Amino acid sequence: MKFGLFYFANDSTEEVGEGRYDVLLEGARFADEHGFNAVWTPERHFHPFGGLYPNPAVVGAALAVATRHISIRAGSVVAPLHSPVRIAEEWAVVDNLSHGRVEVSFASGWHPVDFCLSRGSSYVNRKETMLETIETVRTLWRGEPVDVVDGTDNPATVRVFPPAVQPELPTWITSAGEAETFRMAGAAKAGVLTHLLHQDIDELAEKIVAYRAAARAAHDDWDGRVAVMLHTFLGDDRAYVRDVVHDPLCAYLKSSFHLIARSVADVGPDFDVDSLHEDDVDFLVERSFDTYFDERGLFGTVDQAAETVERLRGIGVDEIACLIDFGVDGKLALDGLRQLDELRRRFQ
């Protein structure tokens, strides 16, 4: 099992000041020095939930010069919001700055308002657009030309510069848990980046089986790879860990509640998240906390977290992307990396 760090901070303060990216940079340096596999940063827009990360390529450039070994990963680039030419250009720069350590997970998008950035890309057809974008980016990454339409509506051919260091772009597809997306990733020869927000471990196991089958059917001698994002904080005592993470994780879940509720297809057409009373939201968040703490995160002691890792390894997960910046005090989050490194060494 490989381990990386994942970032998705809730930036709810509007105060001007320094230090917003200290946990990111210090955590990445620790992971780089201690043999972690990757550091992931997302793409988020127009909301405090994930608000530190509107452009993973910009953040990736900072990480590239702050580290020496660790993989610099987008988790994710929202493909329909951008020109594939621009995606290839930006990440080729990061690949050069990092001496060939870039990997990109592509996502189709989950919030309609984000598509105000897309210049006409349809929210309804976002998955098809994502697949088309991936193939175009791969072509450009290899240094091959692609056909475009210029500003006068005439055909043109372009290549991107600088040339990337890696001859092929290591590619992932992000899935919130849809089985079809897993199969799509396998057919596209892409890894899967997923989480346990809308699925439990048993459900994930079934989807990994389908993913591996699709990968083997489409590509000889390639079985794919699966990374799972988990909220993470480890300590020497489970009760202490629960006390530390309870309030910040509940606040974090509450800050994302409306966004996530609107993105889940099975809530029903008559469900109006805005009609919920504050007490109802607090009740649902508290129940969610119990589920996350007990079943869908890496919390507690190293021994307790190891049980979760063993279970995930048993269903075919290759990597765990540990989300550490969900509101725990920055110093505590960084101090907890020592126990996380102990866990990582057990599975090295």
Rank of each mutant, 00 (worst) to 15 (best):
D274S: 12
G109A: 12
V302I: 11
S122C: 10
P80H: 09
V317A: 07
A57H: 04
F289D: 03
Y123S: 09
D221S: 15
T194C: 10
A38V: 08
L343T: 00
H111D: 07
H47D: 10
D221Q: 13
A215W: 07
W222C: 14
A261S: 12
S122G: 09
R20E: 07
R225K: 14
R216K: 13
D22F: 02
L140R: 02
P42A: 06
N10V: 14
P269Q: 14
E180S: 12
D200M: 13
D147H: 00
D11V: 05
T136F: 03
L323I: 01
T194R: 08
R138I: 04
Y7R: 13
I324L: 07
N37D: 15
A213T: 15
V328G: 11
A305F: 09
E144G: 01
D32A: 02
D282N: 12
K207E: 05
H198S: 11
V93P: 02
G300M: 06
Y123R: 05
M184C: 13
H246T: 12
A88H: 02
R86P: 00
G120F: 06
S256C: 10
D220G: 15
P145Q: 10
D279K: 08
V58A: 15
K127I: 12
A179P: 11
V309P: 00
E43V: 09
D325I: 07
F6A: 12
A62P: 03
L204C: 01
V146K: 05
V245K: 02
T133M: 04
R73E: 13
V267R: 15
V137A: 06
G109M: 06
E15Q: 13
Y211C: 01
I70D: 10
L284M: 15
D221P: 11
L340N: 04
A66R: 09
A66H: 11
L276T: 04
G314I: 11
D22E: 15
F326C: 02
G27H: 07
G191N: 09
R242G: 04
